[in-house]
Write a protein that binds this DNA or RNA. Structure first.
Lengths: 154, 154
DNA sequence: TTAAAAGCTCAACTTAAGTTTAGGTCAAGA
DNA sequence: TCTTGACCTAAACTTAAGTTGAGCTTTTAA
């Protein structure tokens, strides 16, 4: 039971700190895999635990399950992933995290600027028409093309 | 039409860069207000534009509409909000943004640590049982209380 | 052996932040 | 006058990431 352990779903749920329904869900979404025993119950290899840990870690970084799935799919299919494999994943997500942090910081600084300069008319506010980025999260740059508003002192 | 302009919904949508349905939605949720003309069409005061701009800005910071609504509710109800009023809001959200950035950075550093130290067993990985925080976003600390796993070298 | 605990599937429900659709009204220009 | 465009409401739909419930089976422990 050391290397080819067959862990039950309840056990995995407990150890990984996720609910059973979440495990079902991840499986349906193709993020983890199991086989069945004679009684149709799920059985897992032990390395599913790391996989789940990695999934949860990535989620904390704000990565969606879809992206996680894609990235996980770069792992070797046949052999058990090595440390180097996991490191690659980690670095991949770390870069994304760096971008996110940078974006947030730009945003923060811009708000700073807004507060400082009092340009809260928001019309030519640097928050807008900025180098907006960050995939979904964002609703797209705002177009403010009616100049008559610009003198508004409200 | 300078101070008490009554803007139509289409006009506001255009200038604020949001859809009409979003405006209906914000109104239903109590984030913005309008009155009706004789033909039951919405009319807006001009400062709704700033309000929407502020809503969108806050959303970019990752604030939910519910939180935004709450914070907006601290604005004076009777008079038109002053610059100082908006500044207070901005500072409030900025603090939240700062916390978020700090959280992301802690996360990043921890992943760094993980990569560096090779502790990718994820069982005693510093990503877990960490000073986790950040309201929803997070799924709660993971309990990994079965020591037998810890020798796993997978 | 038998009852409780653990599992299974499938479908419906949840929240957030809107969008889409359907069906009806109102106002303006040719 | 008629038609187009802007508006109205209400309800249903969308995505993400699961959760909850119903109804049924398997496994485990006394």
């Amino acid at each position: 039971m050391t290397l080819e352990a067959n862990l039950s779903v309840g056990l995995v749920a407990n150890r990984a700190g996720v609910s059973i329904s979440a495990l079902h869900f991840y499986e349906k979404k193709g993020l983890i895999r199991s086989w069945r025993n004679q009684g149709n119950q799920r059985r897992y290899k032990r390395d599913v635990l790391r996989r789940i840990a990695v999934i949860k870690a990535a989620q904390k970084m704000g990565i969606t399950l879809e992206e996680i799935k894609e990235t996980l799919s770069t792992l070797p299919d046949k052999r058990t992933p090595t440390k180097a494999d996991w490191q690659q994943l980690a670095q991949h997500w770390q870069r994304q995290l760096d971008e996110k942090i940078a974006y947030m910081q730009r945003l923060r600084d811009r708000v700073d600027g807004c507060i400082g300069c009092g340009c809260l008319s928001m019309v030519n506010c640097p928050i807008y028409n900025s180098d907006d980025y960050l995939g979904e999260q964002d609703s797209g740059a705002v177009l403010l093309e009616h100049p008559e508003l610009e003198r508004s002192g409200d």
